[in-house]
Design a binder for these strands. Structure first.
Lengths: 333, 333
DNA sequence: CTGTTAGCGCCTTCAC
DNA sequence: GTGAAGGCGCTAACAG
């Protein structure tokens, strides 16, 4: 175990702890070359490594941030996390990632323990279930950034996709391709989760714009484990969809599962466009048309915002930042 | 910002800091109900949260472990990490995940900064490039567990797949199905990375067992960005493979890309089995036959081992633990 | 049952 | 140029 402390180094080098401290922090200005060398030697003879915990206690900074993601199963989440980690790496800060598993209670627990661990700030994909806590953090000036979802009645910086536009892109594309019975399907909208709601609204508006009727059974949010049933229902009505917009990657998976089960040919029997990229979209048979989010940019931006807040503790002006979605046409439409 | 400290609580409740400390640590045995209540009130009036950093400094324990993964792009890595996180959550320890990106220098840096942050132990998917460091950690008794890969000349607990068996399962299956020109392809074997080497050796032994000849160009390790070329070469010889075993998920992706480009029909033109599960194996057209690792069990086991070591600091007896692979037959063979 | 007293390992004035 | 001293917030004997 690491036992060697600054005092040991000081002893060995015949200087005081403070001098060693200076050395560690690269304050060489007033240090004689000779003592510098002695300290250097002592350090690597003893194989000394500063204890960052102790430093953190003093400096009230841990060079660690926390990320609490609502549901890590989404490809989008993992991509954003990757971007955050890369950005933080550049600034030499570590990242602790926690998965709230869509449960506000877990989220709350994580927020509390991460704060207790004195992380310098938090990036949260909010479940939406802890408004009081969010507000308390906001009021106390704690560095905080929301990603993917926003929370009403707060001014917390939120980095989001232009979700309505994502739906517009999908609908416009399908209409142009000649599809008219377009359905929209996504995961549960019970918790009023921003992207799902906004994408659904966007879908409805886009239909209007194209003077297409909105059939109730063609627009749904449903829990994953009831999704098959829902799709089945969609296809058992008089009017059957000729295209489905999947509100996110998990929905796409379910729809593909259904197509396979029913031997539906894509895009002949049914066209598909997914909002959110998936790992296999290019190599799937057929390759899947997709509306992508710039997830890497979103993550990088969020991290930069947070690190800035953590640094100078001044509020940023903007509170909601929207990124542009983009349609990638492949062969499923 | 959180300013309130134990002293504040002590003041407010008219007790000493130590009493508050007792309270925080649930040592109520000798505490009068009345002071207990007073402290309780003070705490939530002030909205006090203990500073875990300070506690860590004292206790020399951070309730945080580090995971350094050689390459986070592998599905296997992410699954193991998920398992580790779940296991640690149960024990209330946090996890810091770092991606070494296959670079020993990055790995070294992460090991050092995580140690400096006093994490209670490290789970490493070793790049293999830091033998001296591994040995130093081992000698100092620092809690350490290797996953996925082992390192020669160390006795560090390593949690691995029975890789040779994985190849045997794949070959046996293909032979039974009537394939005879079986090829094996994986990512670069320059760094002697355990699973790649072992799977390749297993492949060779399995061919022998079935009295099948080993064609040199049918057994290769190649860097991802040169993989297309390599596959192309394989298919441009006199003898062409009728089945390919992909040594890992990234290889599978490349092979699928190739099949798509060349419009090869699976399994008619070429049969495919992948060692390592992928997210889309069930919904792909056709669904992909796979040899899976019990990645969740592997992660859980590794985490348990590490937490045990971190707790009682005694060495575990076993050093290499092998888990059993399993063949999942689908339609690509 | 509760308070006093020392640190944990480091950083930071401020003397010298 | 360097050292002494105090303190970050908490825990852990040990008194009382």
């Amino acid at each position: 175990m690491e036992r060697v402390t600054m005092a040991d180094v000081a002893n060995k080098a015949n200087v005081s702890k403070s001098t060693v401290s200076q050395y560690i922090n690269n304050r060489f200005e007033y240090m004689s070359l000779e003592t510098k060398k002695r300290i250097e030697c002592a350090i690597d003879e003893l194989n000394y490594q500063p204890n960052i915990i102790a430093r953190s206690l003093k400096q009230k900074k841990t060079y660690t941030i926390g990320v609490i993601v609502a549901n890590i199963l989404h490809t989008f989440s993992t991509q954003v996390i990757r971007a955050i980690e890369d950005e933080c790496q550049l600034k030499n800060v570590n990242v602790i990632v926690c998965n709230a598993d869509d449960q506000p209670s877990k989220e709350r627990k994580y927020i509390e323990t991460l704060r207790a661990k004195q992380v310098d700030g938090l990036i949260i994909f909010p479940t939406g279930g802890n408004l009081d806590l969010y507000k308390k953090l906001e009021k106390s000036g704690y560095p905080l950034v929301f990603v993917d979802r926003s929370v009403e009645n707060t001014d917390i910086t939120s980095v989001l996709l232009d979700n309505e536009k994502a739906s517009f892109l999908a609908v416009d594309h399908l209409v142009k391709k000649g599809y008219r019975n377009i359905a929209f399907l996504t995961t549960s909208i019970e918790m009023n989760i921003t992207p799902r709601i906004e994408r659904m609204n966007g879908f409805k508006k886009a239909l209007q714009k194209h003077n297409l009727p909105l059939l109730e059974q063609f627009c749904a949010g449903e829990q994953i484990h009831k999704m098959q049933e829902k799709i089945h229902f969609m296809f058992s009505q008089d009017e059957v969809p000729d295209a489905i917009i999947c509100g996110n990657d998990l929905t796409l998976l379910e729809v593909l599962k259904f197509c396979r089960k029913k031997s539906l040919i894509i895009p002949t029997d049914i066209a598909l466009v997914s909002i959110d990229e998936v790992s296999f979209s290019e190599i799937y048979n057929p390759p899947i048309t997709v509306v992508t989010q710039p997830s890497y940019e979103i993550g990088t931006y969020a991290a930069k915002q947070l690190l800035k807040k953590a640094d100078d503790h001044e509020k940023t002006e903007e509170t909601i930042i929207r990124f542009e979605p983009q349609l990638v046409e492949r062969s499923s439409t």
